[in-house]
Write a protein that binds this DNA or RNA. Structure first.
Lengths: 208, 208
DNA sequence: GACATAAGCTAACGCCCGTAAGTTGACGAG
DNA sequence: CTCGTCAACTTACGGGCGTTAGCTTATGTC
C-alpha cells in the first residue's frame, strides 16, 4: 500500500508535480473507503512516498488539500455533465435526464468523493483554516449552471411547465438530486424503489 | 466551559444517570459548533465532569455514544413532527406543509445534530465499530412513517395526484426535504429563493 | 459502626498527529 | 569545476487520543 521506493526527486522547476501527486494520494485514500479523517498530512505523505513536512511548500494545511481535491472533482463533475449533455439526443428532455443521471452516477461511483464535495469542507469556525468563504461559494457553479441551462431548454421547448423563476426551480431540482445522491453515499443500502431518481427529476422539472 | 465542580457521585443504583449525562454532553459539544470530531471520549468526559475511563461502563466506544445521540434525536424529531401534524388544521394539505416545515425547521435549528443524524454515523468498515447494520436501518422509521401517512392522506382527499406507489413517492418527497435540510446544515449561506422548501413540497407531493 | 460494593478516579502505555529546525544531495548556471 | 539553490529529508517536540489496570470513596445494609 505504502510506496517503499525511495522516490526519484523531481527535476528543477518541476516541484509543482508533487502538488498533483498529493491530490491524487488524497483521492486514493478516500477511494480506499476511508472518510475524510483518513486524509492526514502524514497519511498523504506516506501514500506519495515523501516525508510529511515536504507537503508544506505545496499546501498550508490539510483543509487546503481537501479544497484542492474538491475543486478538482467539481471540475471533473462539470466535464462529465457536459459530455452527458452532448452525447444525448439534442432535445431538452433527453438532455435533462442524461445530465441528471450522469450526476447521480457520478455520486454513486464515488461516494466518498461526493460526500466531501458537498459538505466535507465544513469546519466549525472559519478562523482556523486557510479556506476562505470565497473558495466555498465558487464551488460547483459550473455544474449548476449547466443543469439550469438544460432545464431552461426544457421550458423553452414546452416540455416543462413555465414558471416565473427558473433559477429557483433549478435549485429545487438540484436539491432533489443532491438528497438522493447524498443519501446513497452515506447509507449502505438505500431504501425506496429503483426509479426514485426519475421520479425526482420528473416532479421537480415539472415535466408535462 | 469545562465543569470544575468535583461533581457529586450518583447514588447507588442511579449510576445509569451518567449515561444520560454523557449523551447530553455529546449533544452540547455538537451544538457548540464542533463537528463530530469534537466528540471524543475525553472531551465528553471533560464536559460531564468525569474521568474518561468512567465512560466505559456505559458505552463501548465513541460510535456507541453517537448512535445513542442519533437515536435520541430521531425520537425527538418524530415527536416534533407528530405535534406539528396535530396542531395544524386537520386537512391533508395543511398537515403536509406543517410536517414538512417542522422537519426543515428542526434541521435549521440544529444543523450539527442533523448532519450526524443523516450521515454522521457512516464508518469505513462495519467491523471496527460496535454499531450494527440493524441499528442503522431502524433509524428514522417513525418520522418517515408519519410523513408517508400525511402524504397518503393528501392522496385520499384528492389534493395530491394518485400514484401507484405511495411509498416511492414518500421516499422522493423525503429525499427532497433532506437535500434542502442537509445543504442548509452544511453551507454557511444557502443560495436560492426563500420558498425552495414550498416548491419542493408542492412538486414532490404532486399537489394539484 | 462494620463492611460489601457500586461509582468513579489516577496513572500510565502506546499511537498518531501537526509542525519547527536544521540537513542533505542533485541539478544547472556561471 | 564550483557553487547556489531547489526539493526533499531527518529528527524531534508537544499534544490529544483510546484504553488498560488498579485504586479510592461514598452509599446503603446488617
Amino acid at each position: 500500500m505504502t510506496n517503499t521506493e525511495p522516490r526519484r526527486r523531481n527535476r528543477r522547476g518541476e516541484g509543482g508535480k508533487l502538488r498533483e501527486e498529493i491530490i491524487e494520494a488524497a483521492l486514493a485514500l478516500l477511494d480506499e473507503g476511508g472518510d475524510e479523517r483518513a486524509v492526514t498530512l502524514r497519511s498523504v505523505a506516506r501514500k506519495v512516498g515523501i516525508a510529511a513536512p515536504s507537503i508544506y511548500p505545496h499546501f498550508a494545511d490539510q483543509p487546503s488539500i481537501m479544497l484542492a481535491v474538491v475543486q478538482g472533482e467539481m471540475a471533473k463533475l462539470a466535464t462529465v455533465l457536459h459530455e452527458a449533455a452532448q452525447n444525448a439526443e439534442q432535445d431538452g428532455r433527453s438532455q435533462l435526464f442524461a445530465v441528471c443521471n450522469a450526476y447521480l452516477d457520478f455520486a454513486r461511483e464515488h461516494p466518498q468523493r461526493y460526500r466531501i464535495m458537498f459538505g466535507g469542507l465544513w469546519t466549525p469556525s472559519v478562523e482556523d483554516t486557510s479556506i476562505t468563504d470565497a473558495d466555498l461559494e465558487s464551488l460547483g457553479v459550473d455544474a449548476f449552471t449547466l443543469l439550469a441551462g438544460v432545464l431552461g431548454k426544457c421550458v423553452e421547448e414546452g416540455i416543462a411547465h413555465r414558471s416565473d423563476d427558473l433559477y429557483g426551480d433549478s435549485v429545487a431540482l438540484w436539491l432533489g438530486l443532491h438528497g438522493l445522491a447524498h443519501q446513497r453515499a452515506v447509507v449502505r443500502k438505500m431504501p425506496g424503489p429503483d426509479d426514485v431518481g426519475d421520479r425526482l427529476i420528473t416532479a421537480l422539472a415539472h415535466l408535462k
